[in-house]
């Protein structure tokens, strides 16, 4: 693969995993705008572990664990309030993480942090497939059923004995873990971390990929991230016109397909649709 193609593939993989980090809480109706913060935690944890001689695979796992714990710690108190409060709290959390990283000199501060081991695209793709498989599997279970039910009608779901808060906490925590994986992949592919990279815009894009792809099926975020990472590359326009096009696409898509590109009805209408029973 040429350098350019490798670059695009790596970015695509990271975007897909980040999209799933956003998808998990969204699938039960909660918007996490702190994906970047969880990514940063995963990235820096993995990089530091790796720097201390921990093998690459274990470092990434360590990064995922750290962001999972952070996700749990944030979601338990915040999900008491939910809705818009959760969105703002995760946003604030992410900004705090980035700001703290910027101020810690041991982690490079504003000048950046060099990461030891390099990870090539093939193992990254394998990790992405693992994440994808985990989400597909979760969605096919009763847990997935509960997530969708909670998104559709939280209080109505509680009537059936579903512990709504637990479902939401679990989803946000798992999503945070995925974000940590995405961050760790980023760290080890580009081998260089800057705290400024993990900003609101990064979270926003992760959320957009998930929503534009559609929340109704576990494949939606994959489609969203694929389309909105690759199409601008093919257009090869300048950066700014590309973003303008992206903005217009978002607005039009919400107008024409507010439920996202891929919906259950669409799959249902396909000739080779899968059946549940």
């Amino acid at each position: 693969m040429s350098g350019y193609a490798t670059q695009i593939a790596a970015i695509l993989i990271i975007n897909v995993v980040a999209a799933y980090a956003a998808y998990m809480p969204l699938a039960c109706g909660q918007l996490n705008l702190g994906i970047a913060g969880f990514m940063a935690i995963g990235a820096y944890t993995s990089a530091v572990l790796n720097g201390h001689g921990v093998p690459l695979g274990l470092s990434i796992l360590g990064g995922a664990c750290a962001s999972t714990i952070a996700g749990l710690a944030v979601s338990i108190p915040v999900l008491r309030a939910r809705g818009i409060y959760l969105t703002i709290a995760t946003l604030a959390f992410s900004e705090v993480v980035a700001a703290v990283l910027l101020n810690v000199n041991a982690l490079g501060g504003a000048s950046g942090f060099v990461v030891n081991d390099h990870m090539s695209v093939a193992p990254m793709a394998a990790v992405m497939v693992l994440v994808l498989a985990a989400v597909v599997w979760l969605s096919s279970t009763r847990f997935g059923l509960c997530m969708t039910a909670v998104r559709n009608d939280g209080r109505g779901t509680a009537v059936f004995g579903v512990k709504v808060r637990r479902v939401e906490i679990a989803a946000l925590t798992i999503g945070a873990g995925f974000a940590g994986v995405a961050g760790a992949l980023y760290a080890h592919h580009f081998n260089y971390l800057e705290a400024q990279h993990f900003n609101v815009l990064l979270s926003t894009y992760a959320v957009l990929y998930a929503l534009l792809g559609g929340l109704q099926t576990p494949v939606g975020p994959l489609i969203g991230a694929l389309v909105f990472t690759l199409v601008p590359e093919f257009l090869r326009s300048t950066d700014q016109w590309r973003y303008v096009g992206f903005g217009v696409c978002i607005i039009l898509l919400m107008l024409l397909r507010p439920e996202g590109l891929l919906t259950r009805r669409l799959i249902h209408d396909l000739p080779f649709r899968r059946r549940l029973a």
Partner: peptide
Amino acid sequence: HLTVLENIMLGQHRLVGSWARILAPL
């Protein structure tokens, strides 16, 4: 966003119990 069968199966939630069962594919 759930099918009819899935909606009905939601009603079984209280009987299903353990986490292991909750994490088994429907």
